[in-house]
Amino acid sequence: MTQTTHADVRGAGPGQSAPHAAQRRSGGPLRRLARALAPVPWIAPATALILFVVIWPVIEMFQTSGQHYDDMGILQGSAGWKNFSRLFAEPDLTKIEIRTLIWVVSVVGITMVVSLGVANLFNKTFPGRKVARWALIIPWAASVVMTAIVFRWMLDPNYGVINVFLHQIGVVKQFNNHTSDWLGNPGPAFCWEIFVGVFVSVPFTTYALLAGHQAIPSDVYEAADLDGASHLRTYWSITLPLLRPALLVAVLINVMNVFNSFPIIYEMTAGGPGDQTSTTTLFMFNLQQSSVGEAAAMSVVNFGFIIVIVLLFLRASKWNTAED
């Protein structure tokens, strides 16, 4: 199905074989045009959709970043590069960029390690595997906002179940104290947010890797077994290399997902105190309350950042050969 479509598109397009094919088959220029336009009804809806939901917002974002809106949202004319110069003059920006890097690297890194283990486990047969596989879906099926709010409540300095438990085992001496206020201090708060980030990312990653596991033919393992390879050696030399496509997809999707993640930090600390737990995504939102233009400038920077990451990543991983 896909292949025939590809062939049609190529044949009608400006590719090498197109002129020959067209000459052989068609009578006049009108028919040639009709043939060239033949795929349009098929690709037009998808193209229109992409233009509408992807390209248009991007154009709007760039436009907004060059405009000056006052604090009631009324357009006051062009701002030139002022939104960008104000953004780069923000004293907290460097710290926020570094924190964003820590956020992405640690959430994705921990998620990948945990998921590799869980996927390997789920690929083996053990009693209750079905239940375990289903159970892992729950953090994924639940709304991220809900998960974040539940964690915020569990960490409440006065009533939170985590604090009640820590109080009972004697770690937290008194409620409503600095020791029980996990989300009020930037350090512990950010660690908890990373934990929740991993918690909601592991299910998808595990299932992506599990699918990769199941695509590895069993005869490769049999051959390794015959050659007397140890379990560790088998995992390192067979499983991991053959998991590469799945790993790449999982890492790439996670990096973008985690970088753009908004609800976890927003619900748990809203980026506060001040901007001390903000990533660039949160900072963009908080800026929008005082300056829409500057927030748009921040999102242009974020957009550029993610494009660069994706390009670097595709290059480093030689995406095309990996997929072939």
Partner: peptide, 29 residues
């Protein structure tokens, strides 16, 4: 005229003046 913007900035940052950051720095910015 710009009180709305200033208010939003105050809401977002003034709390740090009592929690770790120096009041002079926070109020100064």
């Amino acid at each position: 005229a710009n009180w709305n913007s200033v208010e939003a900035k105050i809401q977002n940052t003034i709390g740090t003046a009592v929690q770790g950051s120096s009041p002079a720095t926070v109020l100064g910015s």
